[in-house]
């Protein structure tokens, strides 16, 4: 679905590269989490996928990024947006209107969806993220979690095949963050490819299929959640936290106990503990 080949990028005004020699393949139907310290290039990578780089932010672009057969350098971000939907961290700044319904209508009207279909498309997008009841509300009466769902719905209205999100739960409490990730999981199960940048490793490990760890413009680790979490020392060196159950696994191994494969959730950790005592 997304294919990056030896991709490097330097922002016009910057000294060093924001991305260096990235080769990354993201298959259709993937649910990929991206984590890494600040300045690792996570947001830059998302901007490449959505075509904002190099069309909006210019600079030295080497290599290629192909999304669904389209070279992101050759097509415009607007054309790309029929395939890739983008959700940003700043919840208020990405809104273009003051009412929920208008926010979702914005893209539909822009892309020239026939008037007779508008109503059902809005309904569908809002229902997918579970906020059909908020359709006629004003945005400033909503909570942060609800607004972020509106932002996702507004992008979903275009029926994108890929959804990229940049720290969508940055300002949300644990329950609202989980709710957003449950929405993402549902979408992924329905076939959407999801790429999400996030600092909360517990959320990523609980929901994503694979994990990509970035550091100073490069991909340091990429694989299934279990493959990546099996390298706790490397993760710490990069500056990424491990879920506590993975840290426990590491400590059990260090104590000479046979703990088996690294657990990625509490249920698996429970099985691990029972295994250690068996």
């Amino acid at each position: 679905m997304i294919d990056m080949q030896q991709l490097s990028f330097r922002y016009e005004s910057a000294q060093g590269n924001a991305l260096t020699d990235i080769t990354l393949h993201i298959p259709r139907g993937e649910f990929l989490g991206i984590i890494g310290p600040s300045g690792a290039g996570k947001s830059t990578l998302l901007s490449v996928i959505s075509g904002v780089i190099p069309h909006h932010y210019t600079g030295d672009f080497y290599g290629a990024c192909v999304v669904n057969g389209m070279d992101t350098v050759e097509v415009t971000p607007t054309d790309l947006s029929r395939v890739v939907g983008s959700v940003f961290q700043d919840i208020d700044a990405q809104m273009v209107s003051s009412m929920v319904e208008d926010e979702v209508l914005f893209a539909l009207e822009n892309f020239g969806v026939p008037a007779k279909d508008l109503d059902s498309r809005v309904e569908e997008a809002l229902a997918t993220v579970g906020i059909a009841n908020l359709r006629h509300r004003s945005l400033d009466t909503l909570s942060g979690g609800q607004k972020q769902k509106v932002a996702i719905a507004a992008v979903l209205a275009m029926r994108p095949q890929v959804l990229v999100l940049d720290e969508p739960t940055g300002e949300l409490d644990p329950a609202s963050s989980q709710a957003i990730f449950r929405v993402l999981r549902t979408l992924n199960e329905q076939g959407t490819t999801v790429v999400v940048v996030e600092q909360k490793i517990m959320l990523l490990s609980a929901f994503c299929k694979s994990l990509c760890v970035m550091d100073r413009g490069s991909v340091r680790l990429h694989g299934t959640m279990r493959e990546v979490l099996a390298h706790p020392e490397l993760l710490r060196e990069i500056g990424v936290n491990c879920p506590r159950v993975a840290t426990l696994h590491e400590q059990l191994l260090a104590a000479g106990l046979s703990a088996g494969p690294v657990p990625i959730c509490v249920e698996e950790a429970k099985a691990m503990v029972e295994g250690v005592l068996a």
Partner: peptide
Amino acid sequence: IRKIEAGAISAELRGFHLR
């Protein structure tokens, strides 16, 4: 300015230029 830029990108990625 950061906010306005984010808003502009968000609008562009939702087909603003088409209209």
